[in-house]
Amino acid sequence: MDRRQFLRAAVVGGSVVTLGFSVTRESIAFPAKTGASPYGPLQAADANGIELPANFTSRVIARSTQSVADTGYTWHGAPDGGACFADGTGWIYVSNSEMSSGGGGVSAIRFDADGNINSAYRILSGTTRNCAGGPTPWNTWLSCEEHDTGYTWETDPWGVKAPVRRDAMGRFKHEAAACDPDREVIYQTEDTSDGCFYRFVPTTWGDLSAGKLQVLVDSSGALSWVDVPDPDGSPTPTRDQVPGAKIFNGGEGAFYRNGYCYFTTKGDNRVWAYDAVNNQLHIAYDDNLTSNPPLTGVDNITGAAVGDLYVAEDGGNMEICIITPDDIVAPFLRVAGQSSSELCGVAFNPAGNRMYFSSQRGTSGSSSGGITYEVTGPFRTTR
């Protein structure tokens, strides 16, 4: 029995490898297998170097060190995680900056109902390596610092309210955050090879100033959430404070929907699905569980209303791949000529007909060469 056959039949460290499992119309069957994209094959690269399905188009909306359209605002370097927020009949796209030594932060671009850029501006400055994060149900953006003593910052996409450092959410190498309004908790990933999967339980939902940081613990296959004694992580890192804490190899993106928190780990190239209703952990995708795996270098993740997940690659062959509720994984787009970069910040506008993402280092391979794109086309609303 080879490793792939073994994993298909195994219970892996308390996480069930579930075949063909589905709870709702929108949930993913596990684990996803290589197949044909619902959008068909990728076409030749367009003028922006992006291979897309038929009837889809791309445009560049921002480049690092250059003005965003005619706003006069200079786009940040190393664009990373992002999200969209409804703004009247338009929307706002926020984007982290993964620059080091206090050069990071978050910028925002404001669009009107027709997708025209109205303004661009800074909503967080002076932070370090703002990698991923997540939107909240009360329309703020949680921007996470990816370093050993990093914090989560709560920011205002409109740039009106001052950003607030949320110390109670823990101090560690933050990657992403995903809000679960059903249990009123926020899941967090940690980007280290021996990282953990956390949840923050606010004292009052909607107020992140106080609460409990908990870590997922695996005891002979039984999962539980245990309080982290010292969320400040000093002198003992948060991941080392609770015996039996389940270890994940390089936590990356996170996205919550319908009772599941989907999150990625780059060290083993997996997409996980934490079933919060039944307190179970499933492997939604593993490149060792399918032939000719299209998705490698898993990173940021988001979802579309129809139930599709979209996972951006850091490495691989610079693709954003789709994982459908029908248990299929396939490339949705591919960026040519940027092998020294990574894709990140994948997000949809409120209508679901425009996708945003960034190539962090663009064609130059430098943080000053970042490019942020928009993709427009017939994204499906039914399946």
Rank of each mutant, 00 (worst) to 15 (best):
A78C: 09
P231F: 00
M318D: 07
T71C: 09
V16H: 06
V329A: 02
T372W: 09
T296M: 12
S367C: 08
V298I: 05
E313T: 13
F348P: 00
S220P: 03
A9L: 14
D182F: 09
N249L: 08
D275H: 00
D87A: 15
S37N: 01
T34D: 00
Y310I: 09
E98G: 10
A304E: 07
A178S: 14
I28W: 10
K212Q: 15
W158R: 10
P157A: 13
N317G: 05
Y310Q: 02
T65C: 09
A176G: 13
P235K: 04
V277D: 09
A276Y: 02
R3H: 08
P202R: 13
G102V: 04
V242K: 08
N96W: 11
T155A: 15
S220N: 14
Y274T: 05
T324E: 01
Y260E: 05
S224C: 07
D240C: 08
T128N: 12
R63L: 12
H282C: 10
Y310L: 13
P378C: 05
I50F: 05
V226P: 02
V106Y: 00
T376S: 06
A78I: 11
L52M: 05
F332K: 01
Q43Y: 11
A62I: 07
G253E: 00
D207I: 09
G13Y: 05
D87S: 15
V164I: 14
I323V: 15
Q280K: 10
V94W: 00
E51F: 02
M318V: 05
G195S: 08
A177P: 03
P229Y: 13
Q360T: 12
P243N: 09
A176E: 14
G315A: 07
G72M: 05
T140E: 11
S143H: 04
G126Q: 01
G362T: 12
P135E: 01
A312F: 10
F248Q: 00
S95V: 13
A54Y: 12
D46H: 04
N130C: 14
R354C: 07
V277Y: 00
I283E: 01
Q360E: 13
A132Q: 12
P293A: 08
R110S: 15
A273D: 01
S359L: 08
T74S: 11
F248E: 00
I28M: 14
